[in-house]
Design a protein around this nucleic acid. Structure first.
Lengths: 94, 94
DNA sequence: ATAATATTTAGATATTTTTCTAAATATCTT
DNA sequence: AAGATATTTAGAAAAATATCTAAATATTAT
């Protein structure tokens, strides 16, 4: 169970948000992802690791490659959080 | 126009998220907010400042007090961002 | 088995963030 | 005007984060 805090932390970095946007379009290998940034591969690998710990992406080894894909379920939970901020009352059934 | 980045940064801290939750219930003065935390007032003031820079709260001086209130419009924008992640295609009208 | 490719891990450094104490500013009360 | 209260600003210290280079691991191809 990934803490909510990890999710927000993961989203606080622009590079990680861009990675999410990229993976929204299609799944990619770590190398492909890294090619989109002016940053070393170890740095991207670190960001991928944080996203993974936040349960926002899923990795699958394919031979010597590692394919990354978005895990959209966490985003649904996020939307819930935001809705509860904006909704006046409601949803407060104890 | 507060950069999107500030909003995500603001949300990345648990204290600030709790402040948002508090203000969701009702507007409060800086001091009232601070009373909910085991943290000094200057620290809370700093968090309030970050939330304000992210345009997530509005402050209004009332005599010697400063009343803080939630600005929900930004949260609507956030929800949009998350919806665009989860929605498959759609909304891609150039 | 060696070499080449893909990716991560380890460790170091620089930057950013959080939090504190002390001081400053502003308002209200006497 | 002096004192009390509410809040912020300034500056410092500690902790967390982002990024790099170098090395390690794993897979594929020769």
């Amino acid at each position: 169970m990934p803490a909510f805090n990890n999710t927000f932390k993961a989203l606080s970095d622009p590079t990680r948000r861009r990675i999410i946007q990229l993976l929204k379009e299609k799944s990619m290998t770590a190398g492909e992802i890294a090619d989109h940034f002016a940053m070393t591969k170890p740095s991207i690998s670190h960001h991928l690791n944080l996203l993974k710990q936040a349960d926002m992406i899923i990795d699958e080894k394919q031979g010597q490659f590692i394919m990354y894909q978005l895990n959209t379920t966490v985003f649904q939970d996020m939307i819930q959080w935001f809705l509860e901020i904006t909704d006046n009352e409601e949803s407060e059934k104890k």
